[in-house]
Amino acid sequence: MIDIEGLNKSYPIGNSSLHVLKGIDLKINEGELVAIMGSSGSGKSTLLNIIGMLDNYDSGSYKLDNVPIKDLDETKAAKYRNKFLGFVFQSFNLINYKTALENIALPLYYQGIPRNERQKVAQEYLKKVGLADWAEHLPSELSGGQKQRIAIARALASQPKVLLADEPTGALDSTTSEEVMDLIKQINNEGKTILVVTHEQDIANMCKRIITLKDGIIMTDMKTK
């Protein structure tokens, strides 16, 4: 599903540059649940941003579902993001003046799907994350765990090939974290490829495979039991 070879990325800082990713080789197959770990500055977020087509890379190659991803213009990147990827953020990033249902339906709006169908699909995913009764609530009326579940439903609504979660439990307490991870696992069990960036060991342990980054290179890559 994800095929990365010799990926390099550096950021210019003044006259010099900061080499963040130093030759990453990574293959992730369909249906995997992968945790990407590392301390801050290890390059894990940069890697996720490149995979998420939010950022470009300098050299190497990146294929997503056999489609080479390189130097996309914004319109194309938007189209691919919408088609291939679902994002889950640490701070949920729901749109605060839209109801739960509208938030979930938003990616479908950008796909140009008719309103009735959007509503139907959004309802479905709302049910899937167990918040069917909260459709008309605004994000401000929901708890952190509920918000993250809405965000996950939104990420899934466009039926992406890969779900990218950047510290999905970073803003949640441990009980809620576990609930959210359970949901992520459940979605993975249904066959969805999921990448979770985290710096918490116990969250990583709930995934099927853990990749540890340090100073821009992969230190370890192992399967959990």
Partner: peptide, 16 residues
Amino acid sequence: TKEIGIRRAIGASPNH
């Protein structure tokens, strides 16, 4: 800015 970023992450094209 942030909201627009979110929209674009979930698939809004510059044209949208």
